[in-house]
Design a binder for these strands. Structure first.
Length: 716
DNA sequence: CTAGGGTTAG
């Protein structure tokens, strides 16, 4: 190859199609001794920068330039850095280029603006905008699109309240190095949406990307109505929504829980042939799931021709959010066997399933996976681990992980406080809450649920009122159903039933059946039949099929011996097709869950369990245990009542734990309804006699039995 | 030759 041929090739760099050709060309330049020609080298840099894994050659060549790099060379190196997500380096090169007095041309600005947007350099971004205007590029289509995108990213950044961090985020980009723009320009918080509007309005021509950028930006900043207006205007401008538009718009209807509108978009996507798009698919899966339409969600997932990590995340999160925990776990396993790498969010989505199922072994397994994948430093994941261990009753592990989180945010604080609350350590929860406030973290809606739960489970009425009032007065948070329920529950169980009734009657939002239900439970504990009937009527007024209310009311009647009423209720329930869910307890032994229901004789070890219970009972009675048959709500004689008590599901599960687990280890069981008074007393005796910790999780909390005491302080 | 999208914990 001679010089003329070389020049011809280099004058038409678009002809270089493969990496091999590029390398060959490089060799030719060296062979023909043309290395000192900076125009040849610049062309080669630009050729190299088009290829993905030739970044090192690009950089190397760039630094061998003898004379100051040309605009082509600068653009190539900036483009190469940007495409390798090395945004700081890209911006540094841009600033250097300006330092050489070289004027950028229109097609370099989009990359520069993107880099500013990614590394959140607000100052440089605005400064580049100034120079764009001064270069007369202020109405160039691509540049304007990139500008609008950048300003929307900035807006989101400001909304996150992390504005203080900006000086540290400057990185290598020091504004003073810029030879253009006002280096000390003030950043006006909240003006970024206005900046977008200005850019958008001044655009002489807008394409689909312009509209998509504005629509997506509005959605990401929570301005849904504005986004929908823009969608309509886009149509008026005779531009058809594409797959990008649709996948930005679908999340709006997920947020609005508007499945009708969501389906409309879905239909449009199908008609336009976008329904196999992974992006749209994922947002549709999420939208249907948030609208509790899991069948539709699953169908979209099944019909996707290609599934990436995000489609898997969406379906897993959807299942878990809708309470289909086993299904969620199934998809998680399928994801792993489909060889799709889980992402940090995957764990955050699946963890609540372990927390709800209290499958500690599964949670531990996931924790192991997280540590091996080095995901454990992610705050999201750490918080969900704290939550999971707290909800599985392993408060020590929850605390251990909590203490290892570098900087605690509101979510991790709330998770640990809730952990202590559920496990009956009300005072620890309160001192953590105070510590959180001291460290300047403002408690939010959920934090108050946690602290009120803590007060409720520890019987701290005055503290609860203090927090309940301070929530509105000091933090401007209006109490929601959960807050009312926690306080009503506390008052109810403390016997202050009239006060609870007053509270619920004067709520600023309409009370639901479940709020009244807490009071009904209080009536049952304190045997207040008249009030119970009144409360039950309130419940059936808003929620006629509330089964828990039927069960509680029938228990209230049973306590006061009104068996006729009990029978009437039973018939009523049967007519409504309701069946009382049988009491059931579980214990996990060697990763296997063993379930027991009261009087259940089906377990293969039944004889040994029964024997163990008998031995235990003898020892308990010697220690002073007397069976309390008051709580047996069946119209039977004393002896039968005792037999019924002794075969309660929690006792069977504990006895099975005693005969299978090594002596001294903790026995953990889960029960689907509240543990009864007599079993609570009995388990206290058991923990003392056996000299081991027994942890019982019922449907609302944990009981840690140790040395004859329970963490709930007999208050539950 | 440069620009835009989906999933997340209490």
């Amino acid at each position: 190859m001679n010089r003329t041929m070389l020049t011809r090739i280099l004058s038409n760099p678009g002809n270089v199609k493969t990496k091999f050709q590029a390398l060959q060309l490089h060799a030719q330049i060296i062979i023909t001794g043309n290395t000192s020609s900076s125009s040849h080298t610049s062309t080669l840099i630009s050729i190299y920068s088009n290829f993905n894994n030739l970044l090192h050659y690009t950089i190397l060549l760039f630094h061998t330039l003898h004379s100051p790099p040309s605009l082509v060379a600068w653009k190539s190196i900036i483009r190469a850095y940007t495409s390798h997500t090395l945004f700081h380096q890209a911006l540094y090169s841009f600033i250097q280029m300006r330092g050489f007095g070289i004027y950028p041309d229109h097609n370099i600005f989009p990359s520069v603006l993107k880099s500013c947007a990614v590394i959140m350099d607000l100052r440089l971004g605005q400064s580049v905008h100034g120079s764009i205007i001064r270069c007369g590029m202020g109405s160039e289509l691509y540049t304007c699109n990139a500008l609008m995108n950048m300003y929307f990213k900035f807006q989101g950044f400001v909304a996150l309240n992390v504005f203080d961090e900006i000086p540290q985020r400057k990185g290598v980009c020091c504004t003073k190095d810029l030879s253009f723009g006002s280096s000390e320009s003030e950043i006006k918080i909240g003006s970024f949406v206005d900046s977008v509007r200005k850019v958008f309005e001044l655009m002489p021509k807008r394409d689909v990307v312009s509209w998509n950028t504005v629509i997506a930006g509005n959605v990401q900043n929570g301005m849904y109505e504005e986004a929908l207006i823009m969608l309509r205007e886009m149509g008026n401008a005779n531009l058809k929504p594409d797959s990008f538009t649709l996948s930005s718009v679908v999340p709006i209807f997920a947020e609005y829980v508007d499945v009708i509108k969501g389906k409309e978009i879905h239909g449009y996507a199908i008609r336009s042939g976008f329904d196999s798009d992974v992006f749209i698919g994922s947002s549709l899966i999420d939208m249907y799931a948030k609208c509790t339409r899991m069948e539709d969600s699953l169908r979209v997932f099944d019909l996707l021709p290609r599934r990436d990590a995000i489609s898997w995340n969406s379906i897993i999160a959807g299942c878990v959010q809708n309470g289909a925990f086993d299904e969620g776990l199934r998809f998680f396993r399928l994801m792993l066997s489909a060889k799709i790498q889980p992402m940090p969010v995957t764990f955050s989505s699946i963890m609540p399933a372990c927390a709800h199922l209290t499958t500690l072994h599964l949670g531990k397994q996931l924790h192991g996976y997280i540590i091996r994948g080095r995901f454990d430093e992610n705050v999201f994941i750490a918080s969900s681990l704290v939550d999971m261990y707290g909800k599985c009753g392993n408060i020590r592990m929850a605390r251990w992980i909590f203490d290892r989180i570098e900087s605690h945010d509101i979510v991790s604080w709330t998770a640990i406080i809730m952990g202590y609350a559920l496990n009956g350590y009300g005072n620890d929860a309160i001192s953590l809450f105070e510590q959180m406030e001291k460290e300047g973290i403002k408690p939010g809606y959920v934090s108050f649920i946690a602290i009120l739960t803590a007060c409720s489970h520890a019987g701290l009425i005055d503290r609860a009122w203090d927090y309940f009032n301070s929530m509105t007065e000091n933090y401007g948070i209006a109490p929601g159903l959960e807050h009312y329920a926690a306080v009503a529950d506390l008052l109810g169980r403390a016997g202050r039933l009239e006060e609870a009734y007053e509270l619920i009657s004067n709520m600023h939002i309409e009370p639901t059946g479940s709020v009244w239900l807490t009071l009904l439970a209080g009536c049952r504990v304190h045997k207040k039949t008249e009030l119970a009937v009144k409360v039950a009527e309130k419940i059936f007024g808003v929620d006629p099929d509330n089964m828990a209310a039927y069960v509680l009311l029938s228990n209230v009647y049973a306590v006061s011996g009104r068996w006729k009423e009990v029978a009437k209720l039973r018939i009523c329930m049967r007519n409504k097709g309701m069946r009382k869910k049988p009491a059931c307890s579980w214990i996990e032994i060697k990763n296997k869950v063993h379930a027991f229901s009261a009087g259940d004789k089906s377990h293969p070890y039944y004889d040994r369990i029964n024997e163990a219970l008998k031995v235990l009972l003898e020892k308990m009675e010697r220690e002073g245990y007397v069976a309390d048959t008051n709580e047996v709500l069946h119209d039977v004689d004393e002896e039968q009542k005792k037999t019924l008590l002794f075969s309660h599901s929690e006792r069977l599960a504990i006895a099975f734990g005693v005969i299978t687990l090594p002596a001294g280890t903790t026995i953990r069981i889960t029960k689907n309804i509240r543990v009864c008074v007599d079993c609570h007393t009995a388990i206290k005796f058991m923990s003392k006699i056996l000299g081991r910790e027994i942890i019982v999780r019922d449907n609302s909390r944990f009981h840690h039995f140790n040395g004859g005491e329970c963490s709930c302080g007999d208050y539950w």
